[in-house]
Structures are given as structure tokens and as C-alpha cells.
Design a protein around this nucleic acid. Sequence first.
RNA 1: GGCGGCUUGGCCAAGUGGUAAGGCGACGGCCUGCAAAGCCGUUAUUCUCCAGUUCAAAUCUGGAAGCCGCCUCCA
Length: 484
Amino acid sequence: MSLKIYNTLTGKKEIFEPLEAGKVGMYVCGPTVYDTSHIGHARSVVIFDVIFRWLKESGYDVCYVRNFTDVDDKIINRANETGKDPIEISEKYIKEFHNEMDALNVLRPTIEPKATEHINDIINFVQMLIDKGKAYYVEGSDVFFSIESFEGYGKLSGRNPDDMIAGARVAVDTNKRNPMDFTLWKPAKPGEPAWDSPWGAGRPGWHIECSAMSNRYLGQSFDIHGGGKDLIFPHHENEIAQSEALFGKQFVKYWIHNGFVDINNEKMSKSLGNFTMIKDVLAKYHPEVIRLFLLSKHYRSPIDYNENSMAEMVSSLDKIYTFLDRANRAGVNFNVSEKSSNISSGESWATFKEDMDDDFNSAKGIATIFDAVKSGNKILDKSGESISSDKIKKVSDICADIQKMGSIIGVVSQSPQSYFKAKKDAAILSSSIDPKMVDQLVMERTEARKSKNFARADEIRKELDSMNIILEDGQTGTTWKFGQ
RNA sequence: GGCGGCUUGGCCAAGUGGUAAGGCGACGGCCUGCAAAGCCGUUAUUCUCCAGUUCAAAUCUGGAAGCCGCCUCCA
């Protein structure tokens, strides 16, 4: 079974064959750092994080590049509004982005280049395009890319430039030879960030940085390029035009695009005021709940963020940890901190591998995790109190598989004990309930049960229930937790 | 106007020709002093609708309806 990837360029699922055996070059468009990141950014980043993890798991040596766009009109606008330096703005949001992605258990890419640190690469790139007759400089204005000089323009997005012009939604700029031509370099207004160039002091257009930086780190051709669906046109179309016009060879072999996050079935937009920020979601939910949610639907489909779905994910994650806890209590030893690449690979893992190999079908992969949980629970259920070492081994293998699958999805990264303790601690903090008082009542109830005073025992259960506290009588005593 | 996508049980969601995964919820049972957790069972003869291809279709083709995205430097 080999990895298949849906390629936006061909509109088909294709068998993945890297340009160079054993190696993968992957470039993903990162954020423009002018504002706080929202749940949509998180989806894109988490999806490509899982793709990165899966490629590595599959044995590839992956060079994963994700850029920061740190020079841009929006950053400059934000700087003007706040009276701050643009660099201050971009640095602030890069830091924030890193903090939030770290919290979401996202692995750092191999390289995270910034546009401002590659101005020379960009200028050289633009100059070479001009030299090749693919771009032109208009005195006192911008350097534009000439789409007519590139035959394949529109092949990624399936657009015909003539149709788009006919649609009359293209801004008229008399400096351009063709209305669809786009800016490679623009002059700076006074006070704006600027770099010296053969075309005066200015700054790069948006698209060129990705062509220049991907070329710097991954070469003229590389394997995978990704980003949000909205980037297909014009951003990625323009990247193809720039890079292929210059180097005369295929820029990217596989294009991967992720779908959007809706909020309560509406598109996130400024006008609706429903931008849901990562920090707000992190304040409400465990990071693994968020990852589970973001990966619960196929990456290309839209996904709807709402309280209901999130509550489901909380229950789902609890279910996995509850099983691990149960297995642990039954005598299964496992070490969560150990990255379990060379530990067992059982049936579940084999199925999971098929799931992920099929265009990174994380939704299916998650279902496989639940299948494993169920089969493990079944074994423990049938065993009762006297569990054989044979069965311990089986359950232990299942746990190892679950951890291994979890390490790809990015869940089950802690011990069930610490997961439930943290959960309980957080709930205690926000509920203003005194745990000592609860323990006291639990002790009283235990005494009552010993003396068969079940009326009193039930009374206490009921009293705690009214505080949203659920009691569990186990073999080793009574524990309590908060309800949903 | 151009291009693309989606419509599967109460809800979420896999499934691209072989007779409907998984999660949440609900109900019944086992377990329990009673619960919780877990397990077992029930919850879509059917995949928006219509027509067609096929031995066979949620899956392919044509048409209809509804919803959505991109074409505005928004992931």
C-alpha cells in the first residue's frame, strides 16, 4: 500500500512518488503576521503538521518549509494604526503564533523563513524574470509579471484569464500591459519599510517571496506545496507562473489545499464579527480536543466549529484516556513519553496506515483509534478480576498501537493520570468547589456504605451530583470527577 | 458572468462499482447495594430528487433542487 495524495493540479488522487527517492521537499504558506491567529489558521497548520508527521513516519527525510509573510500592506496598516514599527508588529505576532502552535502540539517545521530576510533572493528572482522577458518595470510604478509570457497561466485554478477579465472584477491599472498582470516589486511610500533595488526603494509583492524562498531551500522543483483553498488563486497560480517561467520546469509535483473552518455554519468574516481566535479556543478546550476536532473531518472539506461538536470531542478524548487509564490499572505498563516508533505494530496500526496512506484520511484514522479502544475494553471486560498475562500482552499491544496512532494525530501525548488530574484541577479552579469538602463527603459515604447505610450513601451521591460531581466506585476505592 | 465543491441515521462523519465504518446522543440488557465507566443489543432495506449505464451504484452518466467556496494580498 503506497501513499496517495489528491493533487489540486490534476484534480485526481495520485500515488506519491517523490522527485528524489527517500526525500520530500514540502513548502506550506504560513501566516501574514499582522494579527492574532484564528481557528482557520490552526486547521491549516495542524493538517500540514499531520502530513509532515506522516511523511516522516513513512520513512522520508522531509524538509518542511513554512514561511512568515512579514512585509505586507496589512502589517504596514497595522503599524500606522498603532504607531508602532512594522517589525514590532510582525515580531509580536510571530511570537504569538509560535506560542499557540506549540500549545497545539504542532511540530516546528524544518525551516521558517521570513520574507524580510530574503530580500536579496527576491530582488535577484525579479531581475532574472525581467532579463528573461517574463516581467517588466514601469518607470515610477511597479515591476509586473506578464501573464501573457507564461503559457500555462491558469492551469492550477482552471481559470482562463480572458474569462476573468470578462467578469470585470479585475482592477484596472493603466500601468499594466494585461489587467491580470501582478506585482513583483512595488515602490515604497515615505515612511514605509523599503529596500534598495534596481527599481528604486521598495518592497516585494506578495507572491514573489514564496517563489524565491522555496527556490532557496527546496530548489527549482520540489514535491509538495500546500496552503488554504483560498490560496489556489491567485497566490499559488502566480507562484507557478513566476517559478516555471524562470526555470522552465515543473515547479511543484503535488499541490495540497485544505478547506475552511466555518463558525456555526457561517464563514468567518470581519463583517459578521465571528472570528474565532486560537487563544480563545485554547482557553476553553484541551489542545488535544482541538486537534481531534480539526482532524475529525477530511482536510479538504469545510468543517464547522460549534459548541456541540466541541462537546462531542471532549467526550471522545475522555473515552480514549479512560481506556488507557483502565488498562493501566489492570496492569498494563506503558510509557507515554517514549516515542513508540519501534514498539509493536498491531492490526490497528496496519489499518491506520491504510487510512493515512489514503490521502491523509485522518477522520478514518480516528475511527480506527476508537476501534482499538473498543477491542481493548472488550478484552478487559471479559477478563474480570483475574486477567491472564496473555491478555495483558494483548491489551498492552493495543495500547501501544493507540499511542502510535495518537502520535500521528497528535493526541494521547500524556499519561491518563496527568490528563484526568489536569482536567479535574481546571474544573475545580473554575467551579469554586472545595475538593477537600468533596473528599470529606466521599469518605463519609464510604463509611455509610460499609455499614450498609445506603440511604445516606445515596443522599451524598445526590448532593454531589447537584454540584456536577460524579462518583465512581472502583475496586481500589471511590474516585470522583466533574460531569460535562 | 467564469471556475470549483458539497447534500449519507436525531447530530457529527467515513465510504468513488459489490450490497452502509466510527463518534456523540437515545433506548433496552449485563455489571453495580444504587450509580458511573465498560460491554452486548436496538437506533439508515437506505445514502437530496428524477432518469440512465451495469449482473451489481451512496459510489459512474445526464438532468433537477438546495447549500457553499474562489474569482477582492482571507488559512
